[in-house]
Write a protein that binds this DNA or RNA. Structure first.
Length: 228
DNA sequence: GCGACAG
DNA sequence: ATCTTGTCGC
């Protein structure tokens, strides 16, 4: 009788090793193909604001092509996990997931944070995208890793291990670009096209993220007033 | 070992 | 992300 053993060791408590294992499993589930409706009507966006150890998670739904805000919900959750570069998802995924459940259905999701533009190709956008199982686009305002390639008009590829994992994209009137990458169920090309489609000419960020950010901060301000 | 490092 | 005022320009 052969000796029975586990395929690999799975730590029971949190550890960097366990987090990396989770990220590897997440990255293996990410689908970089367009599995989305032929015509996008609604795009959801999520963003968080913090106050001590609590997070205010805001989720919104933007209609296309009007780019009007049609749904918005915010929730409050206690936060224990700290912000650690490359492990952002472990701090923000749960609140985001809960807030998203309150805005109903949508065709695509915009997340503020990277998708595959991550050291282990498992950024926050991949993590959340796989969990909610929706076409997801990652939008970051700063470069986490990788090297910016040659610019072609308004965009430049981001290389990581000689592989294109995202694009720097100049939107609105901003000199600084935003960084677009695949979260889940979408190709990089479509992610860029939809990011542009959901971004108003005068703003740098796509509406789903911009509106979610505004809502999160408004809710935080309202919460502070009630505390005073 | 050192520096960098989404939100 | 958060702490913070004014300010330059379209």
């Amino acid at each position: 009788m052969p000796k029975r053993r586990t395929a690999y060791k799975v730590p029971k408590k949190f550890s960097i090793a366990r987090a990396r294992l989770a990220q590897r499993l997440i990255s293996e589930r990410v689908l970089e193909e367009d599995i989305l409706p032929p015509h996008i009507c609604y795009a959801a966006g999520v963003d968080l604001a913090f106050l001590d150890n609590i997070a205010i998670a805001a989720a919104v739904v933007i209609e296309y092509p009007s780019l009007k805000l049609v749904r918005k919900e915010a929730i409050i959750v206690d936060i224990k996990f700290p912000y650690i570069p490359t492990l952002l998802a472990f701090r923000e995924v749960y609140p985001s997931y809960v807030a998203l459940k309150h805005v109903g259905d949508y065709d695509i999701l915009f997340v503020d944070g990277n998708g595959k533009l991550h050291p282990f190709k498992a950024g926050f956008a991949c993590h959340l995208g796989v969990i909610v199982d929706k076409p997801t686009i990652g939008i970051a305002k700063k470069l986490l890793c990788g090297k910016v390639g040659e610019w072609y008009g308004d965009k430049a590829p981001i290389f990581l291990n000689s592989e294109v994992v995202g694009y720097a994209l100049k939107t609105g009137r901003s000199k600084k670009p935003i960084y677009v990458s695949v979260g889940h169920k979408i190709t990089l090309e479509t992610a860029i096209r939809l990011t542009k489609a959901f971004t108003k000419p005068s703003y740098k960020l796509p509406e789903p993220i911009r509106q979610a950010h505004i809502l999160a901060n408004n809710q935080k301000a309202a919460l502070c007033e009630n505390t005073v």
